[in-house]
Design a protein around this nucleic acid. Structure first.
Lengths: 357, 357
DNA sequence: GAATCGATCCGAAACGTTTCGGATTGATTG
DNA sequence: CAATCAATCCGAAACGTTTCGGATCGATTC
């Protein structure tokens, strides 16, 4: 099919060795023969056989990314931007990115990580959405296989990760609501087996307590990160903690679900109750009441995660083993107005057009 | 690092050949020695070296997917579901999926396709969001390199693609609005260099004309597929075609943008004006006024595209070279209610029945 | 009893590259 | 003029697998 080193060698009457060394920029080949070789290579449309090169060099120059999916159909607005981040950085350093999808804690996922750690599928993997006592990471560490996680795990100070600072993010949001005069804030937590779920809950309770506000279990409900899960959690919250004047959800989808529940219960988001989320997914801006949220620099996280992984593979010393990126508060209509001043009637949205499907 | 065929061979006192043939299920190895070999392999944690295998077999068992991105940061809700579709099908057939990102018509994109077509990067590629006179496809065809497109292109009846039937999708939506009594419908088109943009426009005009409704250029505006692009297009439409009672956009994001413009202009979507989109992104359901739209089976498209590509690579005869999947109408609040000046219902019903074939 | 046969096994080549350790020059040095 | 040196080049091995064409051996057949 495509041209060889031998084809070029035959063409210019030199050895395969010299052709290889010429094309790879070694200085023990005369400049004019190098030019001849390069010309021949171009003429023959030569492209090096990556497989052969990988075999000889004993590295694949490939990175693995195993995306956790829930069910066959799933739609994660993050993922495309994250993969663009790692993909671009990988391409810049001449690495390929191999992607596969598996549902969390499934047998398929375990086999995929085993294949990576054990064999020579890729040179390193990127782990996302870290879990409490994460079996993927345990497996990789046991094999001493290169990886970097998006999300924290364990306590080792050299365990490589990139993460957004969930505690800081939720803290800014919580403080924002407290500054608006809210004291009774409900919190919709993420499943506690997800590390970021723990941090976000922690950020909430810490900030509340720092402001002298006690946090009781009645004001916390757990949701499964979906919109319907958020709606259900909000309903439980309304029952257990009816005095709430604000609700913070651990992600935007649950916040949007919560807003629907609140609306149905006659508490208009942005007017009667403040609502905040986390992520800044596109839907947050388009929501019925545009959602106040915390934006994380997901593209940048992808880029940095990938760069760190390649450094580890190459054996380069790391500038930092652990990177924590600051998220940013995005204030929208769902924040409402300061509690001190009661909302004016015309502030209410004309929701006559709204109908349930 | 990890065990070889030779390691196993040494362990059981047989040749590398026999070990290889035993593990690959050849029948010229005695069953009890095969068991011995398998036991040794398990004991040594043997995993075949994929690179060596690929080199020898002269195929990579890898598929390439070059994702067109606009700018470094982009967020495409489709992409994650589509990649899950191709990823799962690829995994089922023991193929790896290599993903990279490039902006459309860029030099980087051209080089990426050239690398695929020319070299031995992957065995075949998946092309998405086909363009008019698509340079990627021209390049692949010139090299005779295996590919399957998501989206139509060219006229050849054997050119392999999988696509959603945009014409049928927009047609159902347009007919839906016509059946509600709308006669003056504005259309926000996608850039005409995108094939699906052309089909969606065609579906609109055909359906209008089939219903005896003329289409003039004043009622069509082009947008860049973003929310702000949709908002701007809607503004132009309001100026050039103020009599509109409904607006159809070529995708959901533009429809959502259009709704904001209409709202600001005092025409409440779902009440004063009907609005429809295409795609059924998550934000469509969460929108201020939930958006009527057309859902395409994106996961299924991914799966089928991948399956077809692997068939081509394997040289298997294709059941079908061209697959067109029917999209599905999703009616939400933005449809509004039937107009008072609705024409006779039985005539509408008959033309609706024509759609279903 | 020689030829044939089926069941098992194996040596060696091949895939295309990189790289180690020289080999071959012609010029320079003392 | 012999020895040294720098500049170029090359042969062969190696990476780990698959596969072609046998080889071996005991059993079966004529």
């Amino acid at each position: 099919m495509s041209a060889n080193l031998r084809d070029i060698a035959d063409r210019v009457g030199l050895s395969v060795t010299t052709v290889s060394r010429a094309l790879n920029g070694y200085d023990d080949v005369a400049e004019k023969t190098r030019q001849r070789i390069i010309a021949a290579a171009k003429e023959l449309d030569y492209a090096p056989n990556l497989t052969a090169r990988r075999l000889r060099k004993q590295r694949t120059d490939m990175l693995g990314f195993i995306l956790p999916t829930f069910g066959p159909r799933f739609s994660d607005p993050f993922f495309s931007e994250f993969i663009a981040g790692i993909g671009n950085e990988a391409a810049r350093q001449e690495f390929d990115l191999v992607v596969s999808t598996h549902s969390p804690e499934s047998e398929g996922e375990r086999r995929a990580y085993l294949r990576a750690a054990n064999g020579n599928w890729v040179d390193g993997v990127i782990v996302v959405r870290t879990r409490w006592k994460d079996s993927r990471i345990a497996l990789l560490e046991a094999h001493g296989f290169p990886f970097v996680a998006f999300g924290r795990y364990g306590v080792d100070a050299t365990a490589p990760y990139v993460d957004e600072d969930s505690i800081a993010g939720i803290s800014i949001l919580t403080q924002h609501f407290i500054d608006l005069g809210h004291q009774t804030i409900g919190f919709i937590a993420a499943p506690s087996n997800l590390m970021f779920g723990r941090y976000r809950l922690q950020g909430f309770t810490e900030t509340m307590e720092r402001n002298g506000l006690a946090v009781e279990t009645a004001q916390i409900a757990e949701g499964d990160l979906t919109e319907t899960g958020g709606a259900a959690a909000a309903a439980r919250l309304l029952a257990s903690f009816p005095q709430l004047t604000a609700v913070i959800a651990s992600n935007d989808l649950m916040a949007i679900g919560a807003m629907k529940t609140l609306q149905k219960a006659g508490r208009e988001p942005g007017v009667d109750v403040a609502v905040g989320g986390f992520d800044d997914v596109p839907a947050a801006a388009y929501a019925n009441v545009p959602l106040t949220t915390v934006r994380q620099p997901i593209y940048e996280i992808g880029r940095k995660t990938c760069a760190m992984l390649i450094d580890i593979i190459a054996g380069r010393p790391l500038a930092a083993h652990q990177i924590l990126l600051k998220p940013e508060l995005v204030v929208r209509a769902s924040s409402g107005v300061p509690l001190a001043t009661s909302p004016s009637p015309d502030e209410r949205r004309s929701s006559g057009a709204l109908q349930s499907e």
